[in-house]
Design a binder for these strands. Structure first.
Lengths: 112, 112
DNA sequence: TTTATATTTCCACAACTATGGAACTGGAAT
DNA sequence: ATTCCAGTTCCATAGTTGTGGAAATATAAA
């Protein structure tokens, strides 16, 4: 991953509304969620959500497709993976134990 | 990790100069680097670097200590780990293979 | 074709962020 | 004490980002 795309991805996530939307999509898994459901979940006006989804989309962190009259958003998994990889790069090569989290079952507070 | 600190960390990294400085520190490992060396490596004026290091520091992504007349910066490993963990949360609980990168030896282009 | 629903685009305004020169502070050397 | 060196703080300025109402667009239903 290039520096530029990493910056775009990090910038996209560095904002409350977008980070929340992103996490909803992380949890929604492969089927994703329609914009309206996200707006409702976050309790923000549609214009505002649309602005933020566009930003996440520019960064490649979400994808969207029309589905009847709604538009369904899904997580951009590849980009997310690249980002995590990128952040860990080089650190891990010297000290894997320090930087990369493992998929640890019981560790996380899950976000609500 | 809380949403707020995640936003602070992501925001701190979402800027070219800071992301570069951060990566220098990732590669520098536990001994870190004095500010002057970073400024030189990034080729920016000290006032500008100072501004950015402060930002990284506010986010907990770097630590600093005076050492003679220079100030040595080191990676804030714990915070970095928390952030990676946070981004993977919930995704991993359903589909570990999708989200978390493993420490893969031959995969990375190393950043320069 | 008219009407309703879902979402986006447009726009203006306020708030925040980055840049770097100049002045300042802390520590070491003479 | 004075001078030098490393880094920080201060400040003005330019640029970027977030907000949400109103208007526009696309699809589906009556």
């Amino acid at each position: 991953m290039e520096l530029e795309s990493a910056i775009a991805a990090l910038g996209a996530l560095a904002q409350e509304t977008r980070l929340r939307a992103f996490r909803l999509l992380v949890r929604a898994g492969t089927e994703g969620l329609p914009a309206g459901v996200i707006a409702e979940g976050l309790d923000i006006p549609p214009a505002t959500l649309s602005f933020h989804l566009k930003e996440l989309s520019r960064a490649g962190l979400v994808h969207s497709r029309r589905e009847g009259r709604s538009i369904r958003y899904t997580l951009g998994v590849e980009r997310m993976q690249e980002l995590l990889q990128f952040l860990g790069d080089d650190c891990c090569q010297g000290h894997p134990e320090l930087c990369l989290p493992r998929a640890q079952p019981g560790t996380g507070k899950s976000p609500r």
